[in-house]
Design a protein around this nucleic acid. Sequence first.
RNA 1: GCCGCCUUAGCUCAGUCGGCUAGAGCGACGCACUCGUAAUGCGUAGGUCGUCGGUUCGAUUCCGACAGGCGGCUCCA
Length: 662
Amino acid sequence: MRRTTVSDALVVAAGTTAADAVAAAGLPSNGPKAIVVVKDPSGRLRDLDWAPAADTEVEPVALDTPDGLNVLRHSTAHVLAQAVQATFPEAKLGIGPFITDGFYYDFDVEKPFQPDDLGKLEKKMQEIVKSGQTFRRREYASLDEAKAELAHEPYKLELVDIKGDVDDSEVMEVGGGELTHYDNIDRKGERVWGDLCRGPHLPSTRLIPAFKLMRSAAAYWRGNEKNPQLQRIYGTAWASRDDLKAYQTRLAEAERRDHRKLGTELDLFSFPDEIGSGLPVFHPKGGVIKREMEDYVRARHIEEGFQYVGTPHISKEGLFHTSGHLPYYKDTMFPPSHMEGADYYLKAMNCPMHNLIYRSRGRSYRELPLRLFEFGSVYRYEKSGVIHGLTRVRGFAQDDSHSYVTAEQAPGEIKHLLNFVLSLLRDFGLDDFYLELSTRDPESDKFIGSDEQWEIATKVLEDVATESGLELVADPGGAAFYGPKMSVQAKDAIGRTWQMSTIQYDFNQPARFGLEYQAADGTRQEPVMIHSAKFGSIERFLGVLVEHYAGAFPAWLAPVQVVGIPIRDDHGDYLQEFADKLRKQGIRAEVDHSTDRMQKKIRTAQQQKIPFMAIAGDDDVSGGTVSFRYRDGSQRNNVPLDEAIAHVVEVVRSRTNAGPTA
RNA sequence: GCCGCCUUAGCUCAGUCGGCUAGAGCGACGCACUCGUAAUGCGUAGGUCGUCGGUUCGAUUCCGACAGGCGGCUCCA
């Protein structure tokens, strides 16, 4: 939080309003820099018509600041609610908070909103904005007064009753220990609308410079599946028209990078209906990327002391009883098939099978840490509504490892894993991370193990996370049933975060499987097991990489690395020889022998985002050279063949994630 | 799983207020062109309009169920 500094502090004199002080200081009241609220010494935002009882130093907050935008967005939500109730008088109000980049408001309406309703509502909102209504705060004297006024708003009534429990940024209706209402007053001084709300708000709707309704969707009341669904309208609002346009450009950019779209365009993968929802197939070009990822990750694991293993896709159900998974995850496992008196499940996790490998013979403390790794195919019956491209599928390969260590070795192993995970992500071009620590919810009975075990395990993860120096975010209640979890969240090229790697401390499964090792003193001890997935799933990570690179993969991952483009047909053989030499060096090189004109071939290669185009015409053939055109449009003409080959090989083998460029 | 919207050629999309041979661009294929840095021209093939059922003289069009997709919600070991 920013500290109030003397230079931008403002004093609101007792008995006068913040607006008076803002005006006296000559601060702007219009445009993106307009002062819309002030921050009091306790850090609380106050409306401009707030009048403190004593002289108070405040910090003016402009519309285009993070706080100012939140106020703008929440105020716009009120305008939306007013427009909805004007258009659909029977609509009951839910909640309407600001969110990242915008706001939403939930309504109980008889019929869900139709796409063209949004346009009508937007128009109505424009009218309200233009009419310059002011927001006026009013405190309820008592609970009963509030209830009487809100008798026709059942959801608001509910909020009034539970106001003590809901005091977070999502629920702006109540909080701060008092019940307040905001009335919208038109230019004639008449009250035209109002809403239970803790505020604060813009001084006037006129200060809403740019907004847009984005979509409507259903949402469960107070986020609980058991509750009725309300109809939610999402909108966005900005301090200027240009900011709104920039936001829309940002959305368009994200859409351009969508891996589902690029997956089709670049012929990487598809989701045949005939196979089933959430079950991708990789085409040859997607297969190349997948294989490169797997080969590299496998090699790095072996370098880091992991042993590559293999396990089947199905198992008798007893295994998942032993591991303890079945009671918790039966709903998300594919139903079993019954064969020869046993129920076989498709596996949804690999750890039980790795435990059996560990247990296959006696283990010595000298073997620890014992690290098992594989690309384990798992199947999870995700609810139909959550399936999304490659990032949420029903069948996928985890780059899964389990480290079996002594309790003393656990911190060192976790540190080792975290560093390894981060270095792998960096190798693939992701380098902006933060960590999340998922702990158990002591209230829930989902989690097994003693308080002490949880405490130790959580502390170990927390210490390593803190030591890493990365930002650490708490995720209470997000742990696995068998132990706490640390996850790496990575930011992609356009700033979106993806949960990638997880490291989990497990003190339950070793006991359930009776895992042990013989210690130096001859006693039998139980190891600790540390689960770790580096990318989470290969499929998901591939999807993230497609979006991160917008399909323009680094040369080492590109499905086709070099394409030869002859100027005339008769330059094709020359380029084919060049390509053959590259292929001998392990480079994926092709020549475009189609009947297209060379300009068209360049366009095609450009659309396929191929890193190197090698062009040759008469000049190059007679000079023994090729001319490079890179993906970014830059060029290097008439490069001698040997040099050209060395250049491509160097760029590919370096695994650089940049370029290539001239 | 819940709510809403959607499904027409390999891809992107027109179209049919229920009626005779359902269109376009890109892609594919063929022919001509042989060209120095993002689309040469002409031609050909390709669709039981997601599936099943209903209404109707007649359904790609209207209704229902199912499947798949999209956007949210919930969930995400």
